[in-house]
């Protein structure tokens, strides 16, 4: 199974590297939104709470922009039967999940420094800040994978992905905003609880997705 997952992942990386549209578009989107916020705020000092909200809104919508691609591409190019023939459901799901987690990492690595730089953010508790970003990103990409599979099977329209993802990701966004706010606040005492919550959420969603994936991808 592990070798199958690696094989799938390698295949996806090759395919994406040779077409590169998704990654480029998503990164462009993220950078544009971040700059838009910085320019529109015209140097105004914002509270930790406001900054966190803005950060997670940008991360959420960047995720909505990019994380459905890995499944929608298979449907659009009609390669999903080829994939299904030569790989098991479990391996397909897990390799797509790993891809999305990596994709989200790349998005965050692009957005966070820009955010900190352009909005002049003072990261007080940096370990907690990074942990919150990482755990939140993991949770978002975990939920996004199964939802992306559903959207791909439903015809792949981008706004549908956002509509169905938002209710499911709401807990993640709340907790992540909360954790990020605390890490930016000099007066607060941060705890690791929000990160544990996000990790638990990720684990739970991955388990549910693993069970449900074959129903989403099964042929009728």
């Amino acid at each position: 199974m592990a070798s199958e997952i690696v094989r799938n992942l390698r295949k996806d990386i090759h395919v994406e590297a040779r077409s590169r549209t998704a990654l480029n578009l998503t990164l462009s989107f993220s950078v544009t939104v971040t700059l838009a916020i910085s320019l529109a705020s015209a140097g105004a000092r914002m509270s930790p709470g406001t900054l966190s909200i803005l950060l997670w809104i940008v991360l959420f919508f960047s995720a909505m922009n990019g994380l459905s691609h890995i499944f929608v591409r298979e449907e659009e190019r009609r390669t999903e039967t080829f994939l299904r023939l030569y790989s098991s459901y479990e391996a397909i799901y897990l390799s797509k999940l790993l891809f999305n987690v990596a994709f989200m990492c790349i998005i965050e690595t692009a957005i966070l420094p820009l955010f900190i730089f352009f909005l002049q953010i003072d990261v007080i508790h940096s370990a907690h800040f990074i942990a919150a970003a990482a755990a939140g990103g993991l949770a978002i990409s975990s939920a996004a994978t199964i939802l992306a599979a559903m959207v791909a099977r439903a015809g792949g329209r981008g706004s549908l992905f956002t509509v169905i993802s938002f209710p499911v990701m709401m807990p993640v966004i709340w907790v992540a905003i909360n954790a990020t706010t605390i890490s930016l606040d000099p007066k607060a005492h941060p705890s690791w609880n929000p990160c544990f919550f996000l990790l638990a959420f990720s684990g739970f969603i991955v388990a549910m997705s693993f069970l449900l994936f074959r129903f989403v991808w099964l042929d009728e």
Partner: peptide, 18 residues
Amino acid sequence: PLVNPYPELTVMENLTFA
């Protein structure tokens, strides 16, 4: 007819994948 190999990969890469 609906079984489509990956357009971005080469013939050999698709076959190795399969």
